[in-house]
Design a protein around this nucleic acid. Structure first.
Lengths: 231, 231
DNA sequence: GCCGAAACGAGAGCACTGCTCTTGCTTTCT
DNA sequence: AGAAAGCAAGAGCAGTGCTCTCGTTTCGGC
């Protein structure tokens, strides 16, 4: 094993993904084009199939990479802040997600945009997909330890209580149902805002979308971690 | 004018759009297929081009229709509630959007999902696109009249103040900057939640997503219209 | 009523896509 | 050394959006 061939294969695989990412950034995530990649590599289109069994397979690999990159960005941002300052941690992670999305909009849309046509996310993606969410869950955990209470207290629906219990068991989180639901809501709001900004939904409406996002994040932090000293 | 030909043309145009919507619902919004539509109509693909200059043109028509349908759903829901009960109005409109999205997921994703490949929204879409938002702005207006204050008070960035002033002038709204920003945030959070649910982001995580959405909406209403008597 | 103009559907065709299969060549393993 | 596996190339298939041409049908002004 690990002869010349194996190394060349790894390099070519990486190169295919790199070109795919660049082309997606130029032509949009849904325009992933195997033939164009092959052309750029000076190969013939059928050769690509030695490395990825299908277009969907390549897409899956890109999605997994993107989830991991986003998760890593979140983890790094979280680790750079005092673990006890939950608001600061939330803001750092939120800004990290926003920054990552702005730098790689096509990859962000690959994760959170409309699923590509007949594409069904395979099993390989679900673990990397949870990586970013786990960062937020850990922040919720610490917030619960500090007795945080949401600004508006939700009434958690019965059907959701079981799901939250399962999540607690799976992640070892100690956040109570109310905090969990508020956190979940802020989580969707966060990604909703990023998605809207990236999709240009605020074009011709809001000029400085960056400033607005910063304030959105502050609002969310205040809503979830209300009875906690501000950072 | 208004001969046989004009009526047939109108009917065929509508039929093309109807078939397109149905096919989109089956194969996903990005799989809009002119040839398949023509096949179903018993026509040849080139005949479609008598009615829509291009695939993008047909897409635009569908998008305009969808924006109008969503806007209409919001307007109807809002009109069915006592105009003074702002929380109830917000909840009604939020639920209307959610219901519409669940009934017509492909059309919702057409509006708020990843933009279709090389598609750039033309001018025709921007007026229908604001229709739903205007409903929320009117609710904010009434809330301002009642002295509503967000649960967490935002500090409105300078760059955004001008945009809000422009929106006020354009819509005749009387909502102050803080309420406007909180409303905007809740608006993105609302559509973010709907999008996540539709895209299956909560699959295998939350069982009863409907119940969760209802509580999300209640949270949002509470966050924006805090110092207002609950409906 | 008539006749030119415009609208229409059919069909062939172009350039492109994802994907398959076969054919030789090269590297790797036994 | 020889078999097996990996590899790139090329031809080819079915499908796409779109264009162009060609007879036919309908419409509006005379």
């Amino acid at each position: 094993m690990t002869g010349v061939r194996a190394r060349v294969r790894a390099e070519l695989t990486a190169e295919i993904k790199a070109i795919a990412r660049r082309q997606m950034a130029e032509d949009g995530p849904a325009n992933l084009n195997l033939r164009a990649i092959a052309r750029e590599l000076g190969m013939v289109s059928s050769a690509i199939y030695r490395y990825f069994a299908s277009r969907d397979d390549l897409l899956t690999a890109l999605i997994v990479d993107a989830y991991n990159a986003l998760g890593e960005a979140g983890e790094a941002a979280d680790a750079a802040v005092d673990p006890h300052e939950v608001r600061a941690r939330f803001l750092a992670v939120a800004h990290a997600a926003y920054r990552w999305a702005c730098e790689k909009p096509s990859q962000y849309l690959l994760l959170f945009g409309t699923p590509v046509p007949g594409y069904a996310a395979p099993q390989d993606t679900i673990v990397p997909a949870t990586r970013f969410t786990l960062v937020l869950l850990r922040i919720l955990d610490e917030a619960a330890r500090q007795g945080a209470v949401p600004a508006v207290r939700p009434t958690v629906p019965d059907g959701v209580r079981d799901d939250f219990r399962a999540m607690r068991e799976l992640t070892g989180s100690g956040a109570d149902d109310e905090l969990m639901l508020a956190g979940m809501q802020s989580w969707t709001a966060l990604f909703g805002a990023i998605g809207f900004i990236l999709n240009g939904q605020f074009r011709n409406v809001i000029g400085d979308v960056d400033a607005m996002f910063v304030e959105f994040a502050r609002l969310l932090a205040g809503q979830v971690f209300h009875e906690v000293d501000p950072a």
